[in-house]
Computed example of a mutant assay.
Amino acid sequence: MNVAFDHLVHLTERPEQAKTAFEQWGFTAIHGGRHPSWGTYNALCCFEHLRYIEWIGIADEQTAKTCGNPLIDQLVADRQEGNGFSQFAFRTNNIGAVAAHLKRNGFTPIGPLPGSRERDDGKRLTWSMLFIEDDTDGAFRYPFFIQWGDGDDVRMNELAPLMRHPIGSVSLSSISLYTLGLERAVNGYRRLFDLPEPDVGRDEAGAYAELAVGGIAIRFYEADRRHPSTRPFSCRLVGMQEQRRIEIDGATYIVSKP
């Protein structure tokens, strides 16, 4: 399956505050816009290779609870646990081919579902989203897929100024997430993306299995069963001249040198 990592979703009560905090640390960040049909709004921080962080907040809880979009359903559920990373997406230029791939590999796709918002300059951004019917019994969560209305070349030109940061050329290189069944999660992702055996190792968060997908590394950890979670808990940003650990709104950003 030909996909590239697109973005990591960070649920927060006040996206504008996360944006301001990142600007104070030397990043370029922007207000995104509102999604009236979902009851949400966002702010963004873009990195090399069209990767970005989306800080998303719920402005209209009733709309969010009833809109029927699987991502928003997940955000509403995660909100009960608190702020933090929630989901992540891979980009494709052929969402129909991805849906066919999912079916061949034994998954049930949901969608594509439309999405849109209006930028501050008046341009309407459009996209399609594809989800996977959950067959995990809550042991882990699958990503979703997105196809933008504009091609990568158009988006690269428009977003180029936003991918430049005062602190350096920054890229999002990895995501770490919890599972309630490490082997099952890894095998699920291998089946999803047709991947080989994972690399294994241990770091400050514990033992992990790592898969390379769409230009980034995904590290899977077994959750502490006293505090069960299947959410991503940290990501790594590389390209800065100094190392830093940023804790904000329930999520950890590990900043490191190239």
Rank of each mutant, 00 (worst) to 15 (best):
D152E: 14
D152N: 13
E118I: 10
M163F: 03
M163T: 13
E158F: 03
E81C: 11
H101I: 05
N83M: 10
G138T: 03
D152S: 11
E133H: 12
P112A: 06
C67S: 05
P166K: 01
N83T: 07
P143E: 02
C67D: 01
N94S: 09
D134M: 06
R124Q: 15
I132W: 02
D120M: 11
G96H: 14
F145A: 02
F131D: 00
I72V: 14
I146Q: 00
G68E: 09
R104H: 11
R104A: 13
A97S: 13
W127P: 04
R124L: 15
L159G: 01
S128L: 13
D150I: 08
I95T: 01
G68M: 10
R79K: 15
V98P: 00
D137I: 00
E158G: 12
A97Y: 06
P161K: 12
Q87P: 09
P109T: 02
Q80E: 14
A89Q: 00
R91Q: 15
Q74P: 09
N157W: 10
Q147T: 13
G82E: 10
H101S: 04
P114W: 05
F140T: 07
D137L: 13
S128C: 08
D135Y: 05
D134A: 07
F85S: 00
Q147N: 08
F107S: 00
N157Q: 12
R155F: 06
D134Q: 10
D73A: 12
R104Y: 04
A89C: 14
R164W: 07
F90N: 05
Q87V: 07
F131H: 12
V98C: 02
N69E: 09
F144S: 03
L130G: 02
C67R: 03
P143C: 06
N94D: 15
V154G: 03
N69R: 06
K103V: 09
F88H: 10
P112Q: 08
C67K: 03
A160C: 07
I72C: 02
D121M: 05
M163W: 01
I146N: 03
L102T: 06
N83K: 03
G138C: 09
A100C: 08
R104I: 05
K103M: 11
A77G: 02
L125V: 14
W148Y: 11
G122Y: 08
T92M: 11
Y142K: 05
P70R: 00
H101Q: 10
E133D: 14
T108L: 08
F88C: 00
G115C: 01
R124C: 04
V76E: 10
I132T: 06
I110Q: 03
L130A: 03
N105A: 12
D78W: 13
D137R: 15
R124W: 12
D152Q: 08
D73F: 04
P70N: 04
G122M: 06
E81Q: 15
R104M: 08
G84M: 07
D150Q: 14
G96C: 10
K123V: 15
G96Q: 11
F85P: 02
A77N: 01
D134L: 07
A100I: 09
D137F: 11
D73Y: 00
A100H: 02
D150V: 07
W127D: 07
N157E: 11
D137M: 13
L75K: 02
N83R: 06
V76K: 06
M156T: 15
L75F: 06
S128Q: 14
A100E: 11
R104D: 11
P143F: 00
D134R: 04
